[in-house]
Amino acid sequence: MTYQVIMAGFGGQGVMLMGTLLAYAGMLEGKFVSWIPSYGPEMRGGTANCMVVVSDVEVASPVVTEPNCVIVMNRPSLDKFERVLLPDGLLIINSSLISKEAERSDIRVLRVPCNDEAMAVGSAKVANMVALGAYLAATGAVSFESVEKSLKKALPERRHDLIPMNMEALRRGASYVNR
């Protein structure tokens, strides 16, 4: 199985970290992974995205042109990436910030109020983890345990007290799958 995902939002929403954690967790599970950030003359509040591949086989192209999942954290990202999703692909929409519905009918859509759920567990900063939780529950790309291990690697030790909140955010996101 090869998971190809594009994660997009505005700068500060943690889309790069969300992708990094997914790639890291995949690596810890012995899978082949790659992560590419968008880079450019971006400004604060501008859009940012990353492309992640998690696969049982060697990653051919790390450039994701036909993703089987797109996670959009803000409206410009929905407008930009809905159309590149493969038919039957999964579109995760941060419904806290995006009121617009998906236009396509040949895809699966999951609306998750990421910011609201994040606020409920204590910080808007973990909205990315809510989205990631929904993604993992819907696809099984990697396990929650691997993400927890990755958080330990990604966060400096003095921030490890934030891990339980991040994990709770993951679980909240997961609860939106199959409800």
Binding site: T20, F32, V33, S34, W35, I36, Y39, V59, P62, V63
Partner: peptide, 10 residues
Amino acid sequence: DGILGQMMEP
């Protein structure tokens, strides 16, 4: 190239 420079892999 820019991708190889910016990309992360194990």
